[in-house]
């Protein structure tokens, strides 16, 4: 039932080969908004992993047992986004009540994450076909994909924050200050990550 090869490939794929930010262009708005300080980047990263894990599991279940079964796929977009928005709201309220410390660390980022293309993006990607097995994503694979995509996002975010903190002290031309130089940095990082393209451990679909 659990295919370990598939899980390893999904993990490596989500973090390096198809990194959500640097390769798939998902989650850019918070990426550039929160990457100015290393501490806030780490907090945002943690929150994103958490939300993506929960969102992946819930949306997969709803998609598999309700939308596909009753031929309601055209409601996918609206159902997914409402589920995600609702989940994040619930999580925020639960954190506030039961774990004030965690709420302090993650809480402010949670509403931002609702409209993060990365969360809706991973939910939608999980409804597609798993490239490695050639079949649909199973539940475990979906959750793995969600978690590891979050890890990939956090990795890129933390790397970016580290660089940006140093950039603050570098002499940058006035027109390129702030966002443009951040984009160039991201571009160079994306170039580096491009080196991972084509990496695969085990040959599967098609022999």
């Amino acid at each position: 039932m659990i295919n370990p090869v598939s899980l390893i490939e999904i993990s490596v794929g989500a973090v390096f080969i198809n990194n959500f930010v640097l390769s798939r262009f998902l989650g850019l708005c918070p990426f550039f908004g929160v990457s100015k300080k290393l501490s806030s980047a780490a907090g945002m990263g943690g929150a994103v992993i958490f939300v993506m894990a929960i969102a992946s599991s819930f949306t997969w279940v709803i998609n598999h047992y309700i939308l596909v079964k009753y031929d309601l796929l055209y409601l996918q977009t609206i159902v997914f986004i409402l589920v995600i928005a609702g989940l994040v709201q619930l999580v925020e309220m639960a954190l506030q009540k039961y774990s004030p410390a965690l709420y302090e660390a993650l809480g402010i980022f949670l509403p931002l994450i609702t409209t993060n293309c990365a969360v809706l993006g991973v939910a939608l990607l999980n409804t597609g076909v798993n490239q490695i097995t050639g079949k649909d994503y199973t539940f475990i694979e979906s959750v793995f994909n969600g978690v590891m995509s979050g890890v990939g996002f956090s990795l890129a975010l933390i790397l970016m924050a580290g660089i940006r903190e140093k950039l603050e002290f570098a002499p940058v031309g006035k027109a390129l200050e702030g966002l443009p130089i951040a984009f160039i940095t991201a571009g160079l990082m994306a170039l580096a990550f491009l080196g991972f393209a084509g990496l695969n451990f085990f040959l599967t679909v098609g022999g």
Binding site: L22, S23, F25, G173, K174, A175, L176, L179, P180, I181, F183, I184, A186, G187, L188, A190, L191, F193, L194
Partner: peptide, 25 residues
Amino acid sequence: TVFILAPGGFFTIAFVMGIVRHLKN
């Protein structure tokens, strides 16, 4: 080819943004 891949996207928007800002400044 790099321009239609991920890095190219970042570079392009960086420079277009930079030009726009420069003109505004």
